[in-house]
Design a protein around this nucleic acid. Structure first.
Lengths: 145, 145
DNA sequence: TTACCTGCAAAGGGTTTGCACTTTG
DNA sequence: CAAAGTGCAAACCCTTTGCAGGTAA
């Protein structure tokens, strides 16, 4: 493995190595937009590495998460979904009908968090703001029924 | 069962009956403050009904949820936690150290939801705003270490 | 070379389901 | 009485772990 010294650095801080499998998981998360779960990542990974195991996917995700390269979100319910860390903090809306996930930013959220953590003296390290409901398309479909 | 016609009504709308077991689950959620998971509800329920099964707890929770009497929340991660529906919408902070859950209100959140759903034409039916971090007590403990 | 990592298969924890019987309305 | 609900045990799904053999630095 001779890639991206920045990555190697991020992992090395945790005493972790940059392996072919971890790089693959990271590549998949970067290439495929959306919020993949471990199973979907596994399916995709198998296309490029026949022998990779689901256990490795889970272990890779754990390491990448610890290194701050990936974040996990349970979109209101269900099992874990993963995506690479992005510059701007954003949140998720999940359509209960078609399953589509819409990302959005909301400056009001950090404000609320800041106000609250000051008032209650909380040290907030993770913020989850997930909405669920119906997207514009699915609202139309229901009206036509 | 001869109790609370209001409850019977709420369940009847879904074609569901008010059974001894469902009433018991609801009573437990009302009596015990906090955010119980299915296992904890089961343990408590067994004290009052030796023969109740965990499957019934899950099925009861599903029915009560559908009837709008109970809500489920995955506090950022982990498995489901349940509580009875309350008048004021509130959110949750979970301490990563001691596990304590702090409830709070935040008028900024409905505002953000309303603004966003108008702008993006989303029909929002569920709002989850979960914070995780360290509570005041656990921050102190860490400083002393 | 020495940690660290992988694949495999088995185990784990939470949740759901099939079935025969019981209960509600 | 018909429809809905229950207990039990088995099944499921997602995730984690033990272990023997590989691999990164």
């Amino acid at each position: 493995m001779e890639t991206d010294p920045e990555l190697i650095q991020a992992l090395h801080k945790q005493g972790s190595h940059l392996t072919r499998q971890r790089l693959l998981v990271l590549d998949i998360l970067k290439e495929i937009p959306g919020h993949l779960d471990a199973g979907a990542i596994f399916q995709e990974a198998k296309k490029r590495d026949e022998r990779i195991s689901l256990a490795t996917i889970y272990r890779s995700l754990a390491v990448l998460k610890a290194a701050g390269l990936v974040e996990e979100n349970r979109l209101g319910e269900e099992h874990g979904h993963f995506e690479t860390i992005q510059q701007a903090e954003h949140y998720h809306f999940t359509c209960l009908s078609c399953g589509r996930v819409i990302e959005f930013e909301a400056t009001g959220i950090p404000e609320v968090v800041q106000e609250l953590s000051g008032r209650e003296n909380l040290m907030v390290t993770e913020t989850y703001f997930n909405l669920r409901g119906y997207c514009p398309e699915c609202q139309k479909i229901e009206q036509n029924t």
